[in-house]
Design a protein around this nucleic acid. Structure first.
Length: 619
DNA sequence: ATAGGGTTAG
C-alpha cells in the first residue's frame, strides 16, 4: 500500500488558505498533516485559520495547548477579538485577565490592539465595571492617546449612557475621527437626550452612514417614529452623499411598522430593490414585521414564502404577525413548520405562538406549548410567557385556573400579569375575584406602584367606586410620569397624521369634530349608543360621553372621511387598546358608510366591515 | 483594530 507523501505546509501556504475560508473538514485534514510532521511553529497560523472560519472552539483547544514557550501577544489578540465578537460573552475579559496574571504560564504584555478588543467586549457586558477597571489601566500605560483605544472607551461609556465620562475621554483626545463623533452621538441617544442628540448630529463635522443609523435607530428606540422617517427622507437627498445601508433600512421599516405606515413601508421595499441593497435575513424579518403590523398579512406571507431557508427570526416575525391578526391556526401551522425544519425556536418565537393561541381562544394548544417549552426547547418561561399564558386562560374564562397559575408562578408576577387577570375578571364580570386581586396588589412593592395604581383606578372605575378613583387619580397626578396618552396615527396620501385624545392641536380640529358628530349621529341610527362604562373619571354622563367621543381613533377616522374617497378602506394605528365604545362605534360606522375600517391597537388587528369586527368581539 | 440594525405577553 502506498502512503501519500506528506505535504510540508508553510506559513505562506496557510496564509493564502486563510483568505479562501475553507470548510472545517479541509482545515482538519491540513491540521492532521501538520501534527504528523510536528510543525509546531504553524500553530499561530492554524489558530488564525480556525478563527477566521468561525471555529472558535477548535481554535481555543489549540490555544490552550499552545507549544512552549507561550502564545505571543498577537495570538492572544486574535483569540480575544474572536470572543469580543460573541456579544455578551465574558470570555474576552477573562482571557485578558489571564494574560496579565504573571504566574500564569501564558502571561504576555497587552498592546493597543489587545486593549481595543477587550474594551469592545466590555461594551457588551451587563455591568460597566470591567470597562471602568480597564479604563484605569489605559490611563496608566498611556494608550489613551491611541485613537482606537480611546474610541472604544467612548463607546463603552456611550452604551452605558455615561454621558460625562464619554465626553471626558473625547475631550482629552489629541485627535478625533468619525468614530469618536458617532460614539459620542450614541451616548446622547442612549441617555435619552434626543434634543441634545439631534443638535449634536446637525453640528457634527464628519458623519457617515453609521452616524445616520445611530440617529434613526435612536428615534425609533424612544418612540419618535415620524422623526425617524424624516431623517430617513433627509438622508436620501443627494447633497448628503451617504449610502443607505442595511441597518438604516431595518430601522426605517421598524418605524413604518410602529406607525402602520403601509405606503411608506412598501415604498422602502421597492427602494431596496432599486438601490441594489441585498435583501438580507434582517431586512426580510423587518419587511415581514412591517407588512404584518400595517395590516397586510398577505404581503408579509409573500415575503416569507419567497425565503428558501427561513431562519429563526424570519419564522418568529411571521408567527407574531399571524398572531396579532388573530390567525392562531396559521401561527400554529408555521410553528410546526419551524419544528420540521429542525430550527430551535427562541423565547420570542414561543411568545408569538402563545399569543396567537391566546387571541384565537386555542386553549389546548397553548397549554401544550407552555407546559412543554422547557423540556422540548430548553426555554425557561419568563414573565412574558406567564403573562401570555394567564391571558390565554383568563380570556377563555378559566379564571380560577389563571389565578392558580399566578399564585404558583416561580417568578414574582408583575403588573402586566395582574392586569391580564383583572381584565379577564372584567370581561367575565367576576367582581369577587377582582376584589381579591386588588387586595393582593395592595401589598405589591413600590416598584410596580405606578402600574398598580393605574390598574386599581380602572378597576375601581368599573366597579363604580368613584371616591376611590378620584383619590388615586389625585395622588397619581402629583407624580411626574404621565400615563400613556391615547394616540392614533393615520396615513393619507403618503403623509402621516397624528391625533391625541381630545386633540386641540390639529389645524382642522373644528371641522374634524363637526364631521365626527355627524358620523356618530348616523351611526346612532343603526343602534350605536355611547358606552361610557369604562371612562375612569367621576364625570357626569354627558361629560363622559364627550370624553369617549374624542378618543383619538374616532378623530382619526373623522379626518379620514374628510380626506379620502367614499368606500375606500381606512387604516388607523393606535397606541392603546381600543375601548368598548370605540369598538361598537366603528362596527356601526362600517355598516352605515359601507367602509372597511382596519384598526391596529396595542395588541391586535380589528377589521370592521358591514357592522362586524374580525375579532368577533374577543380581544 | 474602534461606532449602527430586526422578532417580544397586556
Amino acid at each position: 500500500m502506498q502512503t501519500q507523501p506528506s505535504i510540508q505546509f508553510s506559513k505562506r501556504l496557510l496564509y493564502n488558505l486563510l483568505y479562501k475560508r475553507p470548510p472545517i473538514s479541509d482545515l482538519k485534514k491540513i491540521h492532521a498533516q501538520i501534527i504528523i510532521s510536528s510543525q509546531k511553529s504553524l500553530t499561530d497560523s492554524l489558530i488564525h485559520c480556525y478563527l477566521r472560519t468561525n471555529n472558535v472552539n477548535v481554535a481555543r483547544i489549540l490555544f490552550n495547548n499552545y507549544p512552549f514557550p507561550s502564545p505571543p501577544t498577537l495570538v492572544w489578540n486574535l483569540v480575544i477579538r474572536a470572543y469580543s465578537k460573541l456579544q455578551g460573552s465574558l470570555e474576552s475579559v477573562n482571557l485578558f485577565h489571564q494574560m496579565l496574571t504573571l504566574d500564569h504560564p501564558f502571561s504576555a504584555v497587552p498592546d493597543e490592539y489587545t486593549f481595543t478588543f477587550v474594551i469592545t467586549s466590555c461594551a457588551h457586558q451587563k455591568s460597566i465595571i470591567h470597562g471602568e477597571i480597564i479604563h484605569g489601566m489605559v490611563k496608566k500605560n498611556g494608550y489613551l492617546m491611541n485613537l482606537y483605544v480611546a474610541n472604544s472607551l467612548i463607546n463603552v461609556y456611550a452604551v452605558f449612557a455615561r454621558l460625562d465620562d464619554a465626553y471626558k475621554v473625547f475631550d482629552e483626545m489629541p485627535e478625533v475621527d468619525v468614530f469618536s463623533w458617532t460614539s459620542l452621538l450614541g451616548a446622547y441617544v442612549n441617555g435619552g437626550e434626543m434634543g441634545v442628540a439631534s443638535k449634536f448630529f446637525e453640528e457634527m463635522p464628519v458623519k457617515n452612514d453609521v452616524s445616520w443609523a445611530v440617529m434613526i435607530s435612536g428615534c425609533v428606540g424612544c418612540g419618535r417614529y415620524a422623526e425617524a422617517l424624516r431623517y430617513f427622507g433627509e438622508l436620501g437627498k443627494s447633497e448628503h452623499n451617504v449610502k443607505t445601508n442595511e441597518a438604516i433600512v431595518v430601522c426605517a421599516l421598524s418605524a413604518c411598522a410602529h406607525l402602520g405606515a403601509l405606503d411608506r413601508g412598501s415604498w422602502i421595499h421597492g427602494y431596496i430593490g432599486k438601490n441594489g441593497i441585498s435583501e438580507t435575513s434582517n431586512i426580510r424579518t423587518a419587511l415581514i414585521d412591517m407588512y404584518a403590523k400595517c395590516g397586510r398579512i398577505d404581503c408579509a406571507y409573500r415575503v416569507f414564502d419567497r425565503i428558501s431557508k427561513p431562519d429563526v427570526h424570519n419564522y418568529t416575525s411571521m408567527i407574531s404577525g399571524l398572531s396579532i391578526h388573530g390567525l392562531g391556526e396559521d401561527a400554529i401551522r408555521v410553528f410546526n413548520q419551524i419544528l420540521v425544519d429542525k430550527i430551535k425556536p427562541n423565547e420570542v418565537t414561543i411568545l408569538g405562538v402563545l399569543n396567537g393561541c391566546s387571541h384565537s381562544g386555542m386553549v389546548q394548544q397553548g397549554l401544550l406549548i407552555f407546559y412543554n417549552m422547557e423540556n422540548s426547547w430548553g426555554i425557561v418561561p419568563k414573565i412574558e410567557h406567564y403573562g401570555c399564558f394567564v391571558d390565554l386562560l383568563g380570556r377563555a374564562g378559566y379564571l380560577a385556573k389563571a389565578f392558580g397559575v399566578v399564585k404558583s408562578m416561580s417568578i414574582d408576577p408583575d403588573v402586566v400579569v395582574w392586569r391580564a387577570l383583572l381584565s379577564a375578571c372584567r370581561v367575565h364580570r367576576n367582581t369577587y375575584l377582582g376584589e381579591r386581586i386588588v387586595n393582593h396588589i395592595g401589598q405589591l412593592d413600590s416598584q410596580s406602584q405606578r402600574g398598580a395604581e393605574i390598574l386599581l383606578s380602572n378597576l375601581y372605575a368599573s366597579l363604580g367606586k368613584w371616591d376611590s378613583v378620584s383619590i388615586l387619580r389625585h395622588e397619581m397626578s402629583k407624580q411626574k410620569n404621565q400615563a400613556d396618552i391615547g394616540c392614533s396615527w393615520i396615513e393619507v396620501n403618503g403623509s402621516i397624521y397624528e391625533f391625541r385624545v381630545a386633540d386641540q392641536l390639529h389645524p382642522q380640529i373644528i371641522e374634524i369634530r363637526e364631521k365626527l358628530s355627524e358620523i356618530l349621529k348616523r351611526a346612532g341610527l343603526v343602534g350605536y349608543a355611547a358606552n361610557i362604562n369604562y371612562v375612569s373619571f367621576d364625570l357626569s354622563d354627558e361629560e363622559k360621553e364627550q370624553a369617549v367621543a374624542w378618543h383619538s381613533e374616532k378623530l382619526a377616522i373623522a379626518f379620514a372621511f374628510m380626506s379620502t374617497a367614499p368606500k375606500t378602506s381606512i387604516r388607523v394605528v393606535k397606541n392603546l387598546r381600543t375601548c368598548e365604545d370605540c369598538h361598537s362605534a366603528l362596527k356601526a360606522i362600517s355598516k352605515v358608510y359601507d367602509r372597511q375600517i382596519i384598526v391596529r391597537d396595542r395588541s391586535r388587528f380589528h377589521t370592521f366591515r358591514d357592522g362586524k369586527c374580525s375579532c368577533n368581539d374577543y380581544w
